[in-house]
Design a protein around this nucleic acid. Structure first.
Length: 883
RNA sequence: GGCCGUGUAGCUCAGUGGGAGAGCCCCAGUCUUACACACUGGUUGUCGUAGGUUCAAAUCCUACCGCGGUCACCA
């Protein structure tokens, strides 16, 4: 066999793209034809016009790890990628482009505008797909979907019409959240409340009979033109006599009544509230209770309309607010103004202040859907990881309100409803009608509005697999296995998918829901454009490689915890990848003239058994971690095994054999090293996919690709407890010698003679004797002698204690006796404190009577250990004093 | 205000009933025939505060303090 040369420096740029292309070309991401339960994940579709951020990187890294793990586990595995059309966001982008050309969408007309939007979508789509590929997602691109694809659009129509038929979709005039900037209604959860600095104005309204004035408090004086009443609490003694009286509405010639309603707080403000049903949710409800006709004072663009006095017309509400206040002051109606902080709704897409706005919209009746979703959770058909998110889920469903699904946009699924202009018949149709199904008129018009983007994404887990058709994909891969997403869309998306899925397929869309943390900067702040603290995943890939990014994110992704990172954080993964690269490079450069031989169990020595034992234990940990969604534990296990055990100890221990003159020994060790390397690549593949594939391909002892290799599982045959514990003693001896030398300020290159005296003659002493030369090499000593019958002369030697044995270093040079004595003193003190603690327990009858037998045994063991340590340390001190 | 989370080494965080851990940082040494993105050794903690349960608490319970999130708000 020839030596294999690896590039001297680990550079992921040399192979990541190539390997990704190869995976795609060979169809490695497609589900296998294997039997067994499929593993399916649908990717939360990113906004097609968005840019991939660290949240996506985290989310998709974890999905990739799961997908690769189960794929290697032999299950047919499908990860469905895709994007959503992001109605408002995408339309905003195109409208901004148009604005630069001095155009509005109305200037183009609906058809031309949509054409242009599709072009923008296509361009952005290519970017986002490229990004997903760059970070290494092993999703099946043959299954890629877009929410406005033909099939998914059909699913949307089917859903809308069916819900309408079931009485779960209705149209009506309601007060909705309206964004004047985006020009559309929003759902309740698309409104973000922020604390804004405002004012509380006290305004006086005169009684119509001239008997005086009352004072109302408001944060929005401009809405007074929509006032239809003033309400007081019926229990409020101050105002009982006013109920039923009329008031003159200042700046207008209207009169409005004083009414009684218990929603008014007696304590707050003046205890009198102006009622503006068309512009406040509470007033809307109050108005309904009292049969008051709402008066709308706003144009759709958020300016005051013709209901208002002329001087305020066509002025934005926020500006008009102060003009109205000034006018009121001028006319003597303004009693006072005070600063006032309050929560104000803002559009989650453009941050404009949202107006409660009266309009005709389409709604989904949510209660029946929510009840099913709640029941599925109560039945244990759904499980959140971490579990606490179930509270969020259930409390939202319990307090659910109807969902406003119509949007006054052009980009999206147009509502499948047609109106006849001749007989005003309304038709809700799966297929476009040609004429009115009542009067036959061809004069029909489709509803102008489109549906909320979430109305298509809530179908994602089954619409992507072909629903409403009963496709083979749907039958095989639905319900899906796991959903991985961030907690900020549990309401928007997760719960709605569950509702839709239960309503239309009768099944939960997924059993496990893994909720990731949010990626934040090191100060704990959300990454955002405005703060400029975002990290671009592509920049991370460019600097450190996709493997480094995925591994680092995974290593930090403790369940339920946010991930705080900066650019330097990724050095961690990068250093680990570099370590893997170099360890491999070293082994492969030593293959010249070697032969791979079969290794049987009887060929393994104690150290070999130890490393296989450790590998096996870590394989068990990784399997358990990934099955339980404890990603960081998996990453830690592979890191610890490969770096600490394999590189730092096993490879070092193999060197004497590797450099011996015995070809048989050399073949043996090389074969084992290659075997461990191959196993490690398989174990690490989900976490570091590219480098493991690149190396696996180069290993002479492997066939095929690691992506489709078998994942290591716990193997009873690899358990070697006894050897593992013996090697740990060896490590203890080596560390003891190294420590002592360092503490005595003896340069590392000064080699000492060492005698190791074991407490007993037995397994340990035999083992130590067998591996004396290894201990010698590791500790950089001149010689290591094992003395198991206390026969050798140790006078003048410096002792180092350990459980079961003691090492003696022959140090002739003057050492700092004082310093060493004080070190031993403090060691004795520390140990004595531990011993006292143990004794306290052991002398406590309650402990002896109540504690588990094994706990007592453990305490006794500890006691013996501490006593021994103190005893040895004391002897050492005396020995030192004699030096 | 309700609910949820969180407070462990200088920093970022693991650990969830029985001897306080990792990575980074810092200090000292080493270019030892893969790796200076390395190796060896070392320093660092009232495990937020106060009670309680327990033979035993960083770990369970209660209260409080700090931080964060989320839902809902009364003009």
């Amino acid at each position: 066999m020839k030596a294999i040369e690896l590039e001297k420096v680990y550079d992921p740029k040399n192979f990541e793209d190539r390997i990704y292309e190869n995976w795609v070309d060979s169809g490695d991401f497609r589900p296998s034809k294997a039997k067994g339960e499929p593993f399916t994940i649908v990717m939360p579709p990113p906004n097609v016009t968005g840019i991939l951020h660290m949240g996506h990187a985290l989310n998709n890294s974890l999905q990739d790890i799961l997908t690769r793990y189960y794929r290697m586990g032999g299950r047919p595995t499908l990860w469905v990628p895709g994007t959503d059309h992001a109605g408002i966001a995408t339309q905003n982008i195109v409208e901004r482009q148009l604005a630069k050309e001095g155009l509005r969408r109305q200037d183009l007309g609906r058809e031309k505008f949509l054409e242009r939007t599709w072009q923008v979508k296509d361009k952005h789509h290519d970017i986002i797909v490229k990004q997903l590929k760059k970070i290494g997602c092993s999703c099946d691109w043959d299954h890629e979907r877009f929410t406005m694809d033909e099939g998914l659009s059909k699913a949307v129509r089917e859903t809308f019409v069916t819900l309408y038929e079931r009485g779960l979709v209705y149209k009506g005039m309601y007060l909705v959240n309206y964004c004047p900037h985006c020009g559309t209604a929003l759902a309740d959860d698309e409104v973000e409340h922020q604390n804004d600095k405002g004012h509380l104005w006290n305004i006086e309204y005169p009684l119509a009979d001239g008997s005086g004035r009352i004072t109302v408090a408001t944060t929005r004086p401009e809405t007074m033109f929509g006032d239809v009443a003033v309400a007081v609490n019926p229990e409020d003694e101050r105002y009982k006599h006013l109920i039923g009286k009329m008031l003159k509405l200042p700046l207008t010639d209207r009169e409005i009544p004083v009414i009684a309603d218990s929603f008014v707080g007696i304590e707050f403000g003046t205890g009198m509230v102006k009622i503006t049903p068309a512009h406040d949710p509470n007033d809307w409800e109050c108005g309904k209770r009292h049969n008051l006709t709402p008066i709308n004072i706003l144009n759709p663009d958020g300016t005051l309309n013709d209901v208002c006095p002329e001087k305020f017309r066509n002025i934005p509400a926020e500006k008009a607010r102060f003009m109205v206040a000034d006018e009121l002051a001028a006319q003597g109606y303004l009693a006072s103004v005070a600063d006032y902080d309050h929560e104000v709704g803002h559009c989650y897409r453009c941050n404009t202040t949202v107006e409660p706005y009266m309009s005709e919209q389409w709604f989904v009746k949510m209660r029946p859907l929510a009840d099913k979703a709640l029941q599925a959770w109560k039945d244990g058909r759904l499980e959140f990881h971490p579990k606490r998110w179930e509270n969020t889920y259930s409390s939202w469903l319990e307090n659910i309100r109807d969902w406003c699904i119509s949007r006054q946009l052009w980009w999206g699924h147009r509502i499948p409803v047609w109106y006849c202009s001749d007989c005003s018949n309304m038709m809700v149709k799966r297929e476009d009608p040609c004429c009115c199904d009542k009067c036959g008129s061809k004069n029909i018009k489709q509803d102008n509005d489109v549906l909320d983007t979430w109305f298509s994404s809530w179908l994602w887990p089954f619409s992507t697999l072909g629903w409403p058709e009963k496709t083979p994909d749907l039958q095989k891969f639905f319900p899906t296995s796991t959903l991985v997403t961030a907690y900020d869309i549990i309401f928007f998306w997760v719960s709605r998918m569950i509702m839709a899925s239960l309503e239309f397929t009768g099944e939960v869309p997924f059993k496990d829901i893994y909720i990731t943390g949010l990626v934040r900067d090191k100060l704990g702040r959300k990454m955002s454009k405005s703060l400029g603290n975002g990290i671009d995943p592509l920049e991370v890939v460019d600097l450190y490689g996709a493997d480094a990014m995925k591994f680092t994110l995974c290593y930090l992704a403790a369940q339920g915890q946010d991930v705080l990172i900066d650019m330097d954080s990724f050095k961690m993964g990068s250093k680990f990848a570099n370590k893997i690269w170099n360890a491999t490079r070293y082994i492969l450069m030593n293959l010249e003239d070697r032969n791979i031989v079969e290794i049987k169990e009887e060929d393994l020595n104690d150290v070999d058994k130890w490393i296989y034992h450790s590998f096996n234990e870590n394989a068990r940990k990784v399997n358990a971690a990934l099955q339980g969604y404890r990603f960081n534990e998996g990453a830690q296990a592979v890191y610890d095994f490969f770096w600490n055990d394999f590189c730092d100890w096993y490879i070092e221990a193999s060197k004497p054999e590797l450099y011996s003159d015995d070809d048989k020994r050399k073949d043996r060790i090389v074969s084992i090293l290659l075997d461990l390397l191959a196993r490690s690549m398989r174990l690490m593949h989900p976490f570091l996919s590219f480098i493991t594939e690149e190396i696996y391909d180069k290993l002479p002892n492997t066939d095929g690709k690691v992506i489709s290799a078998e994942f290591p599982v716990f193997d009873e045959k690899l358990v070697h407890e006894k050897e593992a514990s013996l090697v740990e003693s060896l490590q203890e001896a080596v560390r003891g010698i190294r420590n002592a030398k360092a503490q005595l300020c003896i340069p590392p290159d000064r080699k000492l003679n060492v005698t190791i005296r074991t407490d007993e003659k037995g397994e340990l002493s035999a083992f130590m004797r067998k591996y004396a030369s290894l201990i010698c090499t590791f500790s950089n000593s001149a010689s290591v002698t094992i003395d198991d019958d206390k026969s050798s002369d140790i006078s003048g030697a410096f002792p180092v204690a350990a459980p079961g044995f003691e090492s003696y270093l022959f140090v002739r040079e003057a050492i700092d006796v004082e310093k060493e004595i004080s070190r031993l003193k403090s060691e004795i003190e520390k140990t004595q404190a531990l011993l006292d603690g143990v004794d306290k327990k052991l002398n406590n009858p309650n402990f002896i009577n109540n504690a588990k037998a094994e706990a007592i045994e453990k305490e006794k063991g500890k006691r013996a250990e501490f006593v021994e340590k103190i005893d040895k340390a004391q002897k050492h001190m005396e020995a030192l004093k004699k030096l």
